[in-house]
């Protein structure tokens, strides 16, 4: 029973069925997605469905501004502003300042200098973890994306960064996804990242989803994803 309790559903239609009920607290999953797929939508839905359950959510965004992502979520009925009003969302924004947008940090959005500012990124994540600690005993997170970090940093720098933040995410009972573009990296980089994470899911150009590994035993290992007007629906194959 205790085991079961520590698995948190994502509430994304069909996903929990193939993932053995959801994700355990303190699990970091690598989500390998082709660059053409709007994977950030999957992330936004994941966070939004958590907000509906009063679960805090952390969004690290390196390729879009939080303002932009909030707009992109709206057509699906995911009103992320609601999560901000309830003080449940924290953003770490590594995009806006580099794009020279005239914005500053707020209580819910920490703006950092860009993908090289890994210290500031870690600080932003730690602050969110501290805020969440007094709200709930776990939280959800998404990191979009690791690939952006690889454009500007040496792989060893990123490994050191991950060796620092992964234990912090696990210890603070975070559960969520690290996005990574498929076909963009050296196979060795991909293998190293898979090794560091607690599980890996791969999606292809046709929105076929394949579970390569997960911390929970899953009966089905392949599925197809459909993006409907209310969000993703995942059909086991």
């Amino acid at each position: 029973m205790a085991e079961q309790l520590s698995i948190i559903p994502t509430n994304i239609a069909g996903f929990d069925e193939i993932a053995g009920g959801g994700l355990p607290r303190g699990s970091c999953i690598l989500l390998i997605v082709p660059p053409v797929i709007d994977a950030h939508l999957f992330c936004l839905e994941y966070i939004y469905r958590g907000i509906l359950e009063k679960e805090p959510g952390l969004i690290v965004t390196m390729n879009y501004s939080p303002e932009d992502l909030k707009l992109r979520a709206m057509p699906y009925g995911w009103f992320l502003a609601r999560g901000e009003q309830q003080n449940l969302i924290r953003w770490v924004d590594g995009y806006s300042l580099n794009a020279r947008k005239d914005v500053t940090s707020t209580d819910t959005i920490k703006r950092i200098g860009g993908s090289i500012a890994l210290s500031d990124l870690t600080i932003g994540m730690s602050q969110a973890q501290k805020d969440f600690f007094s709200m709930n005993d776990y939280y959800k997170f998404v990191f979009d994306s690791l690939s952006t970090l690889f454009i500007y940093n040496d792989p060893n720098t990123i490994y050191r960064f991950l060796r620092t933040i992964l234990p912090k995410l696990r210890d603070s009972n975070g559960l969520g996804f690290f996005l990574m573009g498929s076909g963009m990296h050296d196979p060795q980089v991909e293998m190293t990242l898979r090794y560091m994470m607690d599980g890996t899911i791969e999606i292809n150009d046709n929105l076929d989803l394949k579970i390569l590994s997960l911390p929970t035993p899953s009966p089905v290992r392949a599925a197809h994803m459909n993006l409907t007007k209310n969000g993703f629906v995942i059909d086991p194959k």
Partner: peptide, 11 residues
Amino acid sequence: TQSKLGLTVED
């Protein structure tokens, strides 16, 4: 500065 713009530091 090596990881962000001077403008960001000023801010």
